[in-house]
Each structure stands twice: as structure tokens, then as C-alpha cells.
Design a protein around this nucleic acid. Structure first.
Lengths: 233, 233
DNA sequence: CTCTTCTTTACACCTTCTTAAAATCTTAAA
DNA sequence: TTTAAGATTTTAAGAAGGTGTAAAGAAGAG
């Protein structure tokens, strides 16, 4: 996936520098606008993924900038403002802002809220339709709320990793999941070597959920790509 | 649209009352859970639209509740917590929370943030089904998201290279793609020699997608130039 | 410490890719 | 129409690389 592009709207140079250097070190791309008119122009021409907006701009009021941008775009806007009054927050949020941080803000919190926003962007794109708390596929059953899995009547004993992998496959029935997608989602990293581990887990998983005479084939290998769970009757 | 259903997770009765009366007067439906286990059970059984979660629960840690719910659900979670440390916020947000308010919180701000969340839910619903990402041409079907190809009812088993080439042709139906264009896009290089390989791949691809008696001609050779996929009726 | 889970390694097995050679097709000039 | 050169398809076999499995060592929880 491409680097996330962030539009930073901030007229105070030191604060702006703080933000941009932080973004740079965390692998974001960014563009800068120092006033409202420029912000609107940049938002329109570069189509950023996220907008960080200071409300105190020299030309237009920040809230006005939000409203203008919202006339054509749903790009997430995170407001960073010195105004800490409730009324200000509410006005900004109701005008279309997605989040509101007050100065002085913690860089770490800003990064965390950026991650939340990014996560949501990815979610929209992949449109994961997970909302049932119990998944069934043939004899296989996963009770997410309880954290239990069953094959027919029998409860399966799965290790944490096996459980996570199975959930991932179940939440994407019919889709081929790449090795790195799986390792990233289960371990958060994607070291090349983990594919070997993944293979071992797939083997034990298969042994457990395809062991019975039933022999329904839940997990399919796609050589050179990854695995997928088949929808069975 | 139906009333928004909110799950309020809060063990402190006065705070809980404050929240629920506020919700009631603002036309929300709500259910209440006073501990983590109940919260997970209610989330699973009632499938709320938004979850308001206090982190300080008597049984399970709030962050754990977030993680458990996130195993099957993307329901927005707004944390309301007495812990105001950055580290707490970051942990909750990175575990899957969508927003974080610290006690004592402004009721008006809470309502504003609820409105932001609702706005986003409506947006997501309208954006769903935009990403169809399925290509069809005659009996041939490519499901890009799932990474699968079909000929009529039957699923085709394609190797990674075959799949890439087919996608490339499909994305340019009707256009003639040169040998080097194809090899560059599939292998990233364009050594003269790879054209020989390409020919072999085209042969096997044709065998697979034109094997049936159907005999519809999907791939056309342009001598000295390359190949193209024809749009069939 | 003991038990479980996770990672690593080794190896047999299988699929896919490349290469080369033969067969077939296309094109155009005689 | 015949012929020849060049391009393409087909086939086959070996090379390269991916996969499943078992087993042993490492890490972590109780």
C-alpha cells in the first residue's frame, strides 16, 4: 500500500515543523498549507488521505475551512486547536471534523489518532463484513464473543495463534489471503521467515479442523500466494 | 432510519445514569452493561451501532474488552475513562477504540462525538457495494478481491503468473498489449528472452480458458506485436 | 520445574517456470 | 501457386522454487 498523504494546515512555523518532522519519521508523506485558502486549494488539488487542521488561521476561520472542504470531500479532518472550550469543539465536530485535539497536544496521541483514522480508511476500502458474533461454515463454528471453536458438537482446542489465523480466514471466506497479509494481521510484523511458521500453523490447524472422517476441505493452498477458506455447503 | 442503538458499558451507577438520561433525551436507544463479560455478551447479542466503554471495569480490563470485541466486530467504540495518561489513550486507540474521552467529560462533547460517529456510519453504508471489483467477459469471470477466476460455474486453477497475465489482459480488454508491456508488468523486467516464456504462458492460459467446447476466443495474437483480450458477447 | 505454545530446521515431495527443439502458421516475394 | 523466412504454438524435460510434515530446540506461562 502507498504511503498515506497528510495535508498539514498550520500557520505557526514551530508547531508546523514539529508535526512535519514527526510525520516524516513515521513514514507519512505530507504537504503543508499555512492559511485557509491554500488549505482548500491543496485539499482540492492533491486529494490527501487525511487533513490535520489548525483552527487559528490568518485568513479564514478554521471552521469555515472545514465546511468548504466538506462541500465536496469526505477526507477525514483532525482538528488541532488552541481553543479548548466545549463550544469550539462541538462547532468544529458538527461542521464536519472527525476529531479534535487541543494544544498543547501529545505527539504520541496525535500519531495514535492518525492510526485510528488510517485503520478506518482501510476498513472502508476492504469493506470487511464482519458483524455476526458466531460464524458457521459446514461443521465449523466460531463463537467470537466466547472465543471458542467447534467442529460439529466437539469443541476444538486451538492455541492463540491458530485461533487468530482461523478467525482471519473465516472473516474472509472465499478470499485468498496472502502470506504477508496473514502474518501481518496475526503477528503485526511480516518478516520473511515467518512464512515457515505460518506453514506449520496451517498444518496443525488443518489437522484439527479436517481430522474427522468428515474430511471436508476447509483450507485451500494457493501456491506462491497464500491460503483461503472455502465456503462449504 | 431507525434509532441508533448504543451499548453503554459503565459500572459506576451515577455516571451511567447521566449518560443514559442524556441518550434518552436525544432520541437514542441504549442498552447497559456493568462489567466486561456482560459488555461482550451484549455486544454479541444485540449488535449495537456504537459502544460507549468505560475502561475501569470490575472484572476484565477495558482494553481487553476492546480487543475481544474487535475479533468479530468493527462497531465504533468510544472510550470514556478516568485515566488521562497518554499511554492509556494510545493503548486503547491502538487496540481498536475509535475515540477517547477523559472524565470528567462534557455531555455536549460526548453528543458531538456521537454525531461524528453516526455520520461516519451513514457514510460507510452508502459507500458499501461500490467496490464490486469483479470482471466478467462472456463466461470468464475474475474476482480481484478474492483472487479467483471462473469459467462459467467452474473455478479455474491459475498459477500466479497466469493470473497476473490474465488480469493485465482483462484490465485492457480490446487493447493490444505488446510483449514487452506484458513482461514488464508481470516480471518487472523485460529481457528479450522472456518473450519465449510469455508464449508458453499464453498457450497454457488459452488451454485453460478456451478448453471447453464453448471455444469462445478470448485471446487474440497480433503477430510481431503482442496479444489482446477480445470483448465477447 | 513442567507444560504448552511457538519457532526453527531439515527433507521429501510437488508445482511452477524456463528453456530448447520441433511443428505449425503467417506473410510476402517470385 | 509455390517457396522461404520469420513468427508463433506446442511439447517435453530439467531447473528452480514453494509446500507439508516431523521433530527438536526456544520461549513463555503457571
Amino acid at each position: 500500500m502507498n504511503k498515506t498523504l497528510i495535508l498539514v494546515v498550520e500557520d505557526d512555523a514551530p508547531v508546523c515543523n514539529l508535526i512535519t518532522t514527526t510525520l516524516k519519521t513515521h513514514n507519512y508523506k505530507y504537504i503543508v498549507a499555512a492559511n485557509g485558502e491554500n488549505a482548500i486549494a491543496e485539499a482540492s488539488s492533491h486529494n490527501p488521505d487525511i487533513i490535520l487542521l489548525d483552527l487559528g488561521l490568518p485568513d479564514i476561520d478554521g471552521v469555515e475551512v472545514i465546511k468548504r472542504i466538506r462541500t465536496w470531500s469526505n477526507t477525514p479532518i483532525i482538528v488541532i486547536s488552541a481553543r479548548s472550550e466545549d463550544a469550539d469543539k462541538i462547532e468544529a465536530l458538527d461542521s464536519g471534523a472527525d476529531d479534535y485535539l487541543t494544544k498543547p497536544f501529545s505527539v504520541e496521541e496525535l500519531l495514535a489518532r492518525l492510526r485510528v483514522t488510517q485503520r478506518r480508511l482501510v476498513m472502508i476500502q476492504s469493506e470487511v463484513n464482519v458483524n455476526q458474533s458466531v460464524f458457521t461454515n459446514g461443521k465449523l463454528k466460531i463463537d467470537y464473543a466466547a472465543g471458542c471453536t467447534y467442529l460439529g458438537e466437539n469443541e476444538l482446542h486451538l492455541t492463540p495463534s491458530e485461533y487468530k489465523i482461523l478467525c482471519l480466514l473465516a472473516q474472509n471466506v472465499g478470499k485468498v489471503l496472502t502470506h504477508t497479509f496473514i502474518t501481518q494481521n496475526v503477528w503485526g510484523k511480516s518478516l520473511e521467515n515467518d512464512i515457515a511458521s505460518l506453514r506449520v500453523f496451517m498444518a496443525t490447524l488443518r489437522k484439527k479442523i479436517e481430522s474427522e472422517q468428515d474430511s471436508s476441505q476447509y483450507i485451500q493452498t494457493h501456491i506462491g500466494v497464500g491460503y483461503r477458506m472455502l465456503k462449504v455447503e
